[in-house]
Nucleic acid binder design. Sequence first.
DNA 1: CTCTTCTGCGTATGGCATACGCGGTACTGC
DNA 2: GCAGTACCGCGTATGCCATACGCAGAAGAG
Lengths: 247, 247
Amino acid sequence: MDSESDEAFPASIEAAWGLRERPHKGPKRGLTLQGIVSAAVKVADEEGLDAVSMSRVGAELGSSTMALYRYLATKDELLALMLDTALGPPPPLPEGLGWRRGLESWATSMRAAILAHPWTVRLLAPKGPPATPNQLAWLDQFLRILQDTGLPASAKLATQLLISGHVWSHVSITAAIMLDTDPGSRRRWSAYEPFLRRVTGEGRLPGVRAALDEGAFGEDPHAADRHFAFGLERALDGVEAHIRSLG
Amino acid sequence: MDSESDEAFPASIEAAWGLRERPHKGPKRGLTLQGIVSAAVKVADEEGLDAVSMSRVGAELGSSTMALYRYLATKDELLALMLDTALGPPPPLPEGLGWRRGLESWATSMRAAILAHPWTVRLLAPKGPPATPNQLAWLDQFLRILQDTGLPASAKLATQLLISGHVWSHVSITAAIMLDTDPGSRRRWSAYEPFLRRVTGEGRLPGVRAALDEGAFGEDPHAADRHFAFGLERALDGVEAHIRSLG
DNA sequence: CTCTTCTGCGTATGGCATACGCGGTACTGC
DNA sequence: GCAGTACCGCGTATGCCATACGCAGAAGAG
């Protein structure tokens, strides 16, 4: 009955939900899943996601590479669990905010949680349905915020897709700039405006050229925050209009 | 003068803009950048993005691995150019559509262009400012559609971020399902609803549970299309309200 | 006709995920 | 208390990968 779902979902994800098995036969386990994941998160925080290899994580634990495979079937499982613990659970929501302020807060918290560990950005690309505890907790909070709006459940999910998509895509661009510690590609951003100017010459790409001449590409460092807020407000305006049209 | 920007942007990207150098000294070149990129796109289409290795592409051309490095500094450059040619230029826009229908059409075309080569999804994660010809052409079309709306250029860019973010994130999820040819993970989707039911027991995750009981997770195959349209309409509603408030 | 510069490409390096199997451990059933 | 067994950590090995380096030869420049 339940044994089928045990097969369909990786054992390590089951384990993350606390569905531990009885203490089996062999020798005592020297490691824990949580310990492995924490070590991997530490490595990612300190040396970047590319430094997270099975051998590097093993070394961090004073263990060997292959020992980890007694806890994880593949590296992808490790990455999924790293994402889950790095994001953490959503912060508790103040009562009585109303759905709009609630979603605003949700999106802002989500953005902050991601940027607290910028390498999570690259792991947010969905590889399957959300299945880890914290990921589902964020989804759950979102759905609860919309509880009393009268939206059908499928519209709630579609709204979550819109808002979290905005957070994700915005944060991806932010991270692409922020994470650029390499001086070579940092130079690329400063060379961007002259590059665009060259490429938009002779009447090519008039839309880009107009934006360029309006100074939209040489913006102040707070432009990212303002763009995030702008998109979020537009999206919420649209949701609000739709909710009103239902009542 | 211009030589600085030549340094800041990879030579292969300059080459993609047709800024070819004079036929230099040595032996004739046996390959072309376009030929390499086309071969790589072919491999990705037929065998998936993971099959695209320098040696596989070299073999496709009857050439060696290292020959490619006379045309590309790194594999990342190849991937950037693959993305650009796979997306292609935006289809010409019917005249007089009005900005709203225009953006709708833009987003729909963009989604179709991505899904025509589903592996592009993974390459859309921004690694720097958009710099290749077709990427900038899509951006340009978007900005031109908003030409007469009275929006400041920075708002136009923020709007583009919102809409393209929606397209990207939606298509990412769609692709995560579509590309799942592996029977093991296909099973995971069908096992998802029972999994959620198990995990939302005992009052946990009430928001998810409510959506589950409303049947929102066991939806028909056209749910993806409807969710895409829903999010797009909400976003455009918000933009429309904002544009009205300016006039 | 030589010289220089660029070509394709062979070889080598260091990294990676992970398959496989061994020797030993500690719980289970007798 | 003892055998059996299932599971442990982990050494070794395989087959990928991107790419650094340098060489031999080709072809335009003088």
